[in-house]
Computed example of a mutant assay.
Amino acid sequence: MVMVGVVLFISLFVYFIPIGLWISALSAGVKVNFSNLFGMRLRRVAPALIVGPMIKSHKAGLELSSDQLESHYLAGGNVDRVVDALIAAQRAQIELTFERAAAIDLAGRDVLRAVQMSVNPKVIQTPVVTAVAMDGIQVMATARVTVRANIDRLVGGAGEETILARVGEGIVTTVGSSDAHTKVLENPDLISKTVLDKGLDSGTAYEILSIDIADVDVGKNIGAELQTDQAEADKEIAQAKAEERRAMAIAEEQEMKAKVQEMRAKVVEAEAEVPKAMADALKSGNIGVMDYMNIQNIKADTDMRDNISNVGSSNASAKKESPKK
């Protein structure tokens, strides 16, 4: 039981107070007390994640306390990356404090990468931006944007997506305001100058150093396509209106035919009443037999004249249609 107790005590002692880590810190000139190491374990902080960056910063000439690093670790930050960023900033003679670097790290940005971009600017290539000039010709352009991280605006500043969106907007505005697409093809640097003059890096975490047009191509004739589409639409509208007028004409014709048929029916009905009326007149003595015979003769004479006129018109038509011998 005594041996078990001794082994358990040694294990707990080594766990709460890592002797190897304490010796490494002591050899590097970093003063770390046993009480600090023991307190880190109680606060559920891995001592290696604090002591290692302290050794690194001490060798680089940075004086960082364990309380600073531990508070940043407890806040959810990456202590090692913050220390690397501070060392890189010191070597590049960039003014960067621990509080600023910790704030950038907690904001979700890569502080080490930001320091590296301050020294070595990054080139961002935009996707193909399509714009239409005033003459209706489509122009497709691709730009390379050289940016440098702005340490002072990393917290709260817009990212690369905003830079790309603003550059694309500037390209569209420049091409759209050109009288002809040939001007853009002849002077692609016109796009770069116009976009740079707009100050697109305002409110972003980057500083635009240059905008270079990588490629410019001619696309479709959008103006002609729009005119063709408009003409096709006008044609369909005209056809629809013509069809509407034709339908109305057919409806009117059908209505007239119905009226004619109705009138003919009334005439037939009236004609059918004539013999009955004449019979009633003969019976009542209003007309005599001779009067009736005269009416019949007049009717027969009228029918004969109609037949003769019809025969004459038919012969005239036949003469006109017969070929000359």
Rank of each mutant, 00 (worst) to 15 (best):
T162R: 08
T162E: 13
T162A: 05
I163T: 04
I163W: 01
I163P: 04
L164F: 13
L164V: 14
L164K: 14
L164M: 08
L164E: 15
L164P: 08
A165D: 09
A165M: 08
A165F: 10
A165N: 08
R166K: 05
V167Y: 01
V167K: 00
V167L: 14
V167C: 04
G168Y: 00
G168C: 07
E169T: 09
E169K: 04
E169W: 04
E169M: 06
G170E: 01
G170S: 03
G170D: 03
G170A: 07
G170K: 01
G170M: 01
I171P: 00
I171H: 02
I171M: 00
V172M: 05
T173A: 10
T173P: 09
T174A: 06
T174D: 02
T174I: 01
T174L: 03
T174P: 00
V175S: 00
V175G: 02
V175R: 04
V175F: 03
G176W: 05
G176L: 05
G176E: 09
G176C: 07
G176F: 03
S177W: 07
S177A: 11
S178E: 07
S178I: 00
S178Y: 03
D179N: 15
D179A: 13
D179G: 15
D179K: 14
A180H: 15
H181P: 06
H181V: 11
H181W: 07
T182V: 14
T182I: 09
T182F: 06
K183W: 15
K183A: 15
K183Y: 12
K183E: 12
K183D: 14
V184T: 08
V184I: 11
L185P: 09
L185G: 12
L185T: 11
E186P: 12
E186L: 15
N187L: 11
N187T: 05
N187S: 11
N187R: 07
N187D: 08
P188H: 05
P188M: 10
P188V: 02
P188N: 05
P188C: 02
P188Y: 01
D189V: 11
D189S: 08
D189H: 07
D189T: 08
L190F: 09
L190P: 09
L190N: 09
L190K: 13
I191P: 03
I191D: 02
S192M: 04
S192A: 00
S192F: 03
S192G: 02
S192Q: 07
S192W: 06
K193H: 15
K193L: 11
K193C: 15
K193F: 13
T194R: 14
T194H: 12
V195S: 06
L196Q: 10
L196A: 11
L196E: 08
D197S: 15
D197H: 12
D197N: 10
D197K: 12
D197G: 06
K198N: 09
K198W: 10
K198L: 14
